[in-house]
Design a protein around this nucleic acid. Structure first.
Length: 873
RNA sequence: GGGCGCGUAGCUCAGCGGGAGAGCACUCGGUUUACACCCGAGCGGUCGCAGGUUCGAACCCUGCCGCGCCCACCA
């Protein structure tokens, strides 16, 4: 802690104005150095890895969600005395920046191709300088406590160094190789994509059956991609398929092209599907490629990198693939070779998950691959043997399913940006991989391709800490403490970090826990989508209700691994909670509450009860947050604050404050409970708790206040029982008043008989205050009686409500109560009447039922008596 | 085709072996000196369907029906 903030001196304003509270507070914290790592201290490290903010201009609700959760963890750890930091990502951000710069260039009528690589990269730096600050400002407004001052918001030299280092290591270990393989090709991007970047979607296409060959050699094959027939080199049938046995070994003529192709037998063919014969296009279909390899077929490419037909020597050359699909089909029809067509034909087609989401094209291509076998095995084993926990555990099968069946990872991309592959080619065909400090021989040229963005992102947990240098940060913060992210990028990002972390860091995992959250959905649980129009900009909610409200609402629905539905209603409810907290604190402060006061030596029942509850809630909150149960932790604090502290304790505190013998103790209890509550809420709602906590305690900042560990007191069962009884009595009297239409504002005279017997002798004033009763005067003439059965005894309430009571309403009320009591007794009777229940059920359960039976029987007797005593209607 | 999960109050969801819960919505009453962004009271559910295990099932097992997501090369 380098400085101290000036204590807040102004009184709390009457109204909570989120904008005012938030204004400049983040900067105050930063200026005061609260977020700086405290070098040289012995504080334990806590480190979280996060993906970068979306750089497309505005804060995305998904980012707001994830940042909120991570911020909650980090703030709590800081309060607990950890040296906590998170490692903000920048790599994806850089990629996004490149895309934005491209767009800007297009608007200027130029392109990256014209500009050239060097000038293009220069432009991206300019863009970052201009817009990077705005993005950071957005993140800060969200209230995150990330240490942006580390200036990791660049794709810097250090990362380049890490990328080249690990590439070379993998290359030297034989885990990176170059090969001609069937890859997912994006004609739009003119680049290859990895398997995970391909989304399979059902589309309505066509299934066209074509007759190949003539006369006795005729065979019908079906396809959804007619144009690929230009690249066919065989027709395959199942080896045992007798229908085609006579054709095996024959050559038939490929229509339109005129080439002779073989008829071959391959196990892959399903004789039950279609005609049982398949056209084989080895260069443009993964299955056909395998068949081609087995049968040593020629593999002619019939499409160029932009998706145009090329090199077939037919009239179709130069046509776009979709154009050619129609043209080829019609040319075949003209020859009478179309024997059947099914349209629409629903089938699954791979689409690019990036850019324009166009259909990808399987294509034979020379690319760089990572041999993932041993890496994926290690990543799977780390979870299998418990070194890394997947949270929640239900998502483990998903992890294994992926990691245990992983195909080799295609890492080269034919893009203009990104980290270039550090492989150089010599004039005589030499190939060499160079490390970061190696210089290429003169005249050699570097591979033109760049690396998949997830290659560099996979290094995040250690490249951001200075690896490959053995820095102090690396020693202290690796392995990091937890990875918090959405289940949707388990395969993209998490798997890569695991593989690279285990590999580069000598088998040491990058994080011991993978805490997965779900996706933010709209208030009806629907996926947010631009086309549906149900997306929300978190900034509009922050403007309307404040950042704290947004954070609270998000945290409150964050169940592990589960999607989080959120609507404006939820944010509004969170805002209402903030207001409640504000007003409660204002009440406490204006009544002299302070945590600096000594707790009373002889607490009242209410004091003892709320202090006991505080301790329970604190323990529960700790347990839940340690388990990443943000929703339940937040919900628990919400109910404690609103339903217990505000609705009951503050109301009970009012008469206590008016009584000289309990006033000081009450001020102390109010101060202690509120102090702990505000500190526990601070990670979720940093801004409002800061203002309130400073107002309550006069402390410098709740950011650096210790996390509550000893707040509260052991539960006092007697006091708790008293308060429970008090609550029941209060509710019953209120209910009676409501049903007899006595306005809350009207005080009525009442005599409470049996309070001492019920153990509530001390609570007379509290009850009178809660239900607005006056002591009976000389002219007391009760017109109504109420009996309330409590654990300690029955209390008779005699009320003077000046006039006759509403008999019908009272009869209806008693009738409902009677029905409930009878149902209760019947249930208990049935259970206790079952010999096996009494025999086999645990004694405490049986006793519980017995107690319920007795209590219900008593209720029935009392209510029945009341009913008969009522004047007839 | 394989995997994971879900069907509980009008909506969104907790609960996951012993008395059906929350938020929002709804009804009624209320200017009580923290708070109408509030207070008080209330209405509302054969816990998807059918079997089974158990003294006891929303909760465990089986089957069915209806959804969601992920993975998968069926032309």
């Amino acid at each position: 802690m380098t400085e101290t903030l000036p204590p807040r001196t102004a009184d709390l304003p009457a109204k909570w104005n989120p904008g005012e509270v938030e204004g400049g507070m983040y900067q105050r914290w930063v200026d005061a150095g609260y977020f700086e790592a405290d070098a040289g201290s012995a504080r334990p490290p806590f480190c979280v890895v996060i993906p970068p903010p979306n750089v497309t201009g505005s804060l995305h609700i998904g980012h707001a969600f994830e940042h909120t959760l991570i911020d909650i963890l980090v703030r709590r750890r800081r309060m607990q005395g950890y040296e906590a930091l998170w490692l903000p990502g920048t790599d994806h951000a850089s990629i996004a920046v490149h895309a934005l710069v491209e767009r800007a260039l297009a608007a200027e009528g130029t392109s990256r191709r014209e500009l050239g690589r060097e000038a293009f990269i220069e432009r991206t730096w300019e863009w970052k300088a201009e817009h990077g600050g705005a993005i950071l400002a957005q993140m800060r407004r969200l209230g995150d406590s990330v240490d942006w001052s580390r200036e990791r918001f660049t794709m810097d030299e250090g990362l380049n160094r890490a990328v080249v280092t690990i590439f070379k290591r993998l290359f030297d270990d034989g885990l990176i190789y170059r090969a001609e393989r069937m890859v997912n090709w994006s004609p739009e991007m003119r680049s290859v994509l990895s398997d995970v970047e391909v989304e399979h979607r059902d589309v309505e296409g066509e299934l066209v059956s074509i007759c190949y060959g003539d006369g006795p050699d005729a065979v019908v094959v079906a396809t959804t991609r007619v144009e690929t027939m230009l690249g066919d080199t065989a027709v395959a049938v199942h080896p045992d398929d007798e229908r085609y046995a006579h054709l095996l070994g024959h050559e038939i003529e490929l229509p339109l092209v005129g080439r002779m192709i073989r008829v071959i037998a391959d196990e892959h063919v399903d004789p039950g599907f279609g005609t049982g014969a398949v056209k084989v296009t080895p260069a443009h279909d993964p299955n056909d490629f395998e068949i081609g390899r087995r049968h040593d077929l020629p593999m002619p490419t019939m499409m160029d990198e932009t998706g145009k037909i090329a090199g077939t020597g037919t009239e179709f050359d130069g046509m776009d693939r979709f154009e050619a699909r129609v043209a080829v089909r019609e040319a075949l029809r003209a020859q009478g070779r179309i024997v059947a067509e099914k349209r629409p034909y629903l089938h699954s087609v791979g689409h690019s998950s990036r850019g324009k989401h166009e259909p990808i094209e399987p294509r034979l291509s020379l690319q760089w691959f990572v041999k993932v076998g041993p890496l994926a095995q290690a990543a799977g084993d780390a979870v299998r043997d418990g070194r890394v926990a997947v949270h929640p555990p239900e998502l483990e099968p998903r992890w294994f399913g992926w990691v245990d069946n992983m195909h080799d990872w295609c890492i080269s991309r034919q893009l203009w940006w990104g980290h270039r592959i550090p492989v150089w080619y010599g004039p005589a065909g030499e190939v060499v991989c160079l490390g970061p400090d190696d210089d290429p021989p003169a005249g050699w040229t570097q591979d033109e391709d760049v690396l998949d963005t997830w290659f560099s992102s996979g290094l995040w947990p250690f490249s951001t800490l200075g690896w490959p240098e053995r820095t102090a940060d690396l020693a202290k913060f690796y392995p990091t403490s937890v990875l918090v992210t959405g289940y949707d990028i388990l395969f993209f990002w998490v798997a890569r970090m695991m593989m690279f972390g285990l590999y580069a860091m000598d088998g040491e995992k990058p994080f011991p826990t993978i805490a997965l959250h779900g996706m933010v959905r709209d208030q009806f649980g629907k996926k947010m989508s631009k086309t549906v129009g149900n997306t929300v900009d978190p900034a509009t909610w922050m403007d309307a209700y404040g950042t704290d409200s947004l954070r609270f609402a998000l945290a409150r629905v964050a169940n592990p691994g589960t999607d989080a539905p959120i609507g404006e209603d939820a944010v509004q409810a969170a805002r209402n909670f903030g207001t409640k907290l504000w007003n409660a604190t204002r009440f406490a402060v204006s009544n002299g509450a302070s945590p600096a006061l000594a707790l009373p030596a002889q607490p009242t029942d209410a004091d003892a009860w709320i202090l006991g509850r505080l301790r329970e809630v604190r323990e529960q909150t700790d347990a839940l947050l340690e388990d990443y149960q943000f929703a339940k932790a937040t919900e628990g604090l919400y109910h404690f604050a609103w339903d217990e502290f505000c609705s009951w304790y503050i109301e009970l505190a009012k008469p206590q404050l008016a009584d000289g013998s309990t006033a000081d103790g009450t001020r102390a209890v109010l101060g202690h409970v509120l102090d702990a509550l505000l500190r526990m809420l601070h990670p979720v709602t940093p801004f409002i708790t800061e203002a309130l906590w400073q107002g309550l305690t006069g402390g410098a900042s709740v950011v650096v206040a210790p996390w509550p560990v000893d707040a509260g007191a052991p539960t006092d069962p007697v006091a708790s029982a008293q308060v429970t009884a008090l609550q029941k009595l209060t509710t019953e009297i209120r209910r009676f008043r409501t049903e007899q239409r006595v306005p809350d504002s009207r005080r009525i005279a009442a005599r409470l008989v049996g309070l001492d017997g019920a153990g509530l002798g001390e609570q007379r004033a509290a009850i009178a205050s809660l239900v607005r009763l006056d002591e009976p005067g000389d002219d007391f003439a009760p017109t109504a009686t109420l009996e309330v059965a409590l654990a300690g005894g029955t209390v008779h309430v005699e009320l003077d409500i000046s006039g006759s009571i509403d008999v019908a309403a009272e009869r209806a009320r008693l009738g409902r109560d009677l029905a409930a009591a009878q149902k209760e007794r019947d249930q208990a009777d049935r259970k206790l009447g079952t010999p096996k229940f009494v025999e086999k059920a645990p004694a405490d359960v049986v006793d519980g039922i017995r107690a319920r039976q007795e209590s219900a029987a008593g209720d029935i007797e009392r209510i029945t008596a009341r009913l008969t005593a009522l004047p007839s209607a």
